[in-house]
């Protein structure tokens, strides 16, 4: 089992806020999706992020707002355990974020090796 991170992105929010009922329905969709992953023992952690944020660049430059250059912003993430990227992708297919015009980026946790003789180091290269 390897670790994968799903990054949820949405276009920066403009216009009307959704109603309380709409919000509740969305929340339930998220909950049942995550529960299904947890039931397979593949859940590791998830969070939603507040839209406010700052970005820090070298030389102590702090800019307001989440990362400005992208037209979309990261709204949350989920870390899962999966056997392969394909396996993780399959889980992502049913992610509620896709229903509301967002997207999901799926990325494997990178292994960093200092020792070129280690088995994992060799595996990575194969």
């Amino acid at each position: 089992m390897k670790e994968y991170m799903m990054i949820f992105r949405n276009e920066k929010m403009e216009g009307e806020m959704p109603s309380a009922e709409q919000m509740q329905m969305v929340m339930q969709q998220w909950q049942s999706w995550i529960t299904a992953i947890a039931n397979q023992g593949k859940y590791s952690g998830t969070n939603r992020l507040l839209p406010e944020g700052k970005t820090i660049k070298p030389n102590n430059i702090v800019t307001d707002g989440p990362y400005m250059e992208a037209k979309e912003m990261v709204g949350g993430y989920l870390v899962v355990k999966a056997n392969s990227l394909a396996d993780a992708l399959e889980m992502a297919q049913t992610c509620p974020n896709l229903v509301y015009g967002g997207n999901v980026e799926v990325r494997a946790v990178m292994t960093i090796d200092n020792d070129p003789n280690s088995p994992s180091f060799l595996q990575e290269k194969n």
């Binding site: 991170m5 896709l98 990325r107 494997a108 990178m110």
Partner: peptide, 20 residues
């Protein structure tokens, strides 16, 4: 709490059509 680097290759799934 936790921290991990991510592999540079990955995939993205978009929208209701679930385009990969």
């Amino acid at each position: 709490v936790s921290a991990q680097p991510l592999n540079t290759d990955g995939k993205q799934i978009m929208g209701t059509k679930k385009l990969v």
